[in-house]
Design a protein around this nucleic acid. Structure first.
Lengths: 341, 341
DNA sequence: TTGAAAGCGCTAACAG
DNA sequence: CTGTTAGCGCTTTCAA
């Protein structure tokens, strides 16, 4: 690979002039610039980003850490973050945490090692005690979750409100025996994650509408197709009557719809189903899936803006911000109102 | 951030000794090692990967360039590549090409800039004329596609065989009027991509089974849910009778199944549908989706092995290899044999 | 077993 | 408008 020195020699200028041309700085005579450009083309020169990063102490790269990139929700999120970061001149590398605390801590450590300029982390397991780590020299924005006692930069979605929206809609469309798959009954304030918050919303919404809000109507599960399938099996085996089912993600919902069909239960006639995330697929399943939709674009915009502002030093160190994204319910076929006949 | 010099000063040794400890090189006295380790912990020191990369000329990072990370196929692929690369001590960064030639050339250029050690590129638009670029100092393995006249390192899937498998299965399960969504009739040998190859397999398989293999039975489409929906609409509007439908990806198939339902056509009773990729979702849709399954794990293993061998200089420069992954058809409900009554 | 010196390729700061 | 110098943090090379 040619270096800047090679280009300088060939163009008969100093390396500094080459650098000035490459970085489009003023005060370079047009003729000189052309000579340098020609040399660059002839040698097939390209800047070495590693050397530039070492010198500048910045990489121009933001890390996005998500649990698993092969879940549709995170695929879309990644796409949006990449596009949005590009508008501020940043690249994005994606890191997977495996939805584990170790992986999430690893993403933090790793961002430091690689000198990424900032980190947007969709943390699902980082505990409040880890929050101190989130307030380091490295600009970090926590995305998606909502519960740290310590102040950190954070973009959350209102999972409780979303869960309540879902169950209210189920009841209002004629269901009385509601249940939830993918929720969690928190053992304390320590591990408040999306599963817990959505479950709280579910219970609150059910109580509000005067339907049975027994925590036994909530089963835990992975946020996966298999989790939905197994969740339905467990509900039915426990003998819990269900005509309205709230699933903590769309993937769970799709697995659940399939399992319901396998048990001879039709959606929406026998059971109404609501998912969460509003992935594109939700419009295309049969039946199409009613889902709680977070304001993805707004959240991504807020997260990137926040991390970029920190990187640029535009905010005081202790000035932590929190943004909570809006939720909406998108009604589709899976909760069509039951004909009273 | 503490540097190696800070650690050295604190431990009362030279930077070289610190480096030796960090890299677990022998010839460091146990006592010295402990002293250095203690200093590292006290200062919270971590190596600066950028500086190391600049010095070594290697980054330990492989780039994986895919069209769009939010398609399930590529999400899974990324997951597999990350896991496999880790076994050889490499990290992976994911780059999106937008399924455009510019994006694919960009991934190449970018891998050079960032000094990535190698590139695995799922190229869908790079033309044969660009193949020369693939044989540069940068180790590159082309994944998924199959058609370059020039020799390059390549891991392909047998798209033609896969298309033929699909149509044979449709005919053998009782369908006679087959059509395809997401295929392309190539204008020449220049742009042979998956859409073209799968269409060739479709035509060959149809001819082999003695059913109508008119190219008008193939409609182009995006590899997306919307593409499948629109493809069905176009087929039906063109008045083409269809009782067997081959879709170039599972996403197309899911969109198509939905559109068929909207037109009052039931799957599999009225139309049998075969997808391609065998994404996990295929087992969970209603009806579950018959799909052509590439040997993903085998392909990923081959691709990572090839690029790592190149990085390590274990192969002669001109010794290009090609691996073609096996295909299988996974039969599910969407092609259940029609009861002759 | 440990250390000193050099330099990877680039850019900030300043000099001309 | 252009050039010189120094140094980012690390590892390679060689010497002690």
């Amino acid at each position: 690979m040619a270096t800047m020195h090679d280009v300088a020699r060939r163009a008969g200028v100093s390396v500094m002039t080459v650098s000035n041309v490459i970085n489009e700085r003023p005060h370079v005579r047009a003729a000189t610039r052309e000579r340098v450009r020609a040399a660059i083309d002839e040698l097939g020169y390209a800047v070495n980003a590693t050397a530039r990063s070492l010198r500048q102490g910045r990489t121009g790269v933001i890390c996005l850490a998500v649990p698993e990139i092969d879940r549709p929700y995170f695929g879309i999120l990644a796409q949006l973050v990449i596009e949005r970061a590009a508008t501020d001149g940043f690249e994005v590398v994606i890191e997977q945490t495996g939805a584990a605390r170790a992986g999430e801590l690893g993403a933090l450590a790793h961002s430091r090692l690689r000198s990424y300029d900032g980190l947007i982390i969709n943390a699902v397991r980082l505990a409040g005690a880890d929050a101190a780590l989130l307030r380091s020299e490295l600009p970090v924005v926590v995305l998606g979750e909502r519960a740290y006692a310590e102040p950190v930069d954070r973009v959350a979605m209102d999972n409780v409100a979303g869960g309540a929206l879902a169950v209210r809609h189920l009841v209002d469309s004629g269901r009385r025996s509601v249940a939830m798959i993918g929720g969690r009954m928190s053992s304390g304030p320590a591990d408040i994650d999306a599963a817990t918050e959505r479950a709280r919303g579910f219970l609150a919404g059910a109580a509000e509408r005067g339907v049975d809000a027994d925590p036994r109507r909530i089963v835990e599960s992975d946020f996966s197709l298999e989790g939905g399938r197994d969740g339905v099996r467990r509900l039915l085996e426990a003998g819990i009557a269900v005509d309205g089912l709230f699933c903590a993600t769309d993937l769970i919902a799709i697995g659940a719809v399939r399992a319901l069909a396998d048990h001879g239960l039709r959606v929406p006639v026998d059971v109404g189903v609501v998912g969460f995330d509003d992935v594109p697929l939700a419009s295309f399943t049969t039946p199409s899936l009613t889902s709680v939709a977070p304001d993805r674009i707004g959240m991504v915009d807020a997260a990137v803006s926040m991390v970029v502002a920190r990187i640029r030093g535009e905010r005081a160190d202790a000035d932590y911000r929190e943004v909570v994204g809006a939720m909406a319910i998108i009604e589709r076929e899976s909760t069509a109102t039951i004909d009273p006949n």
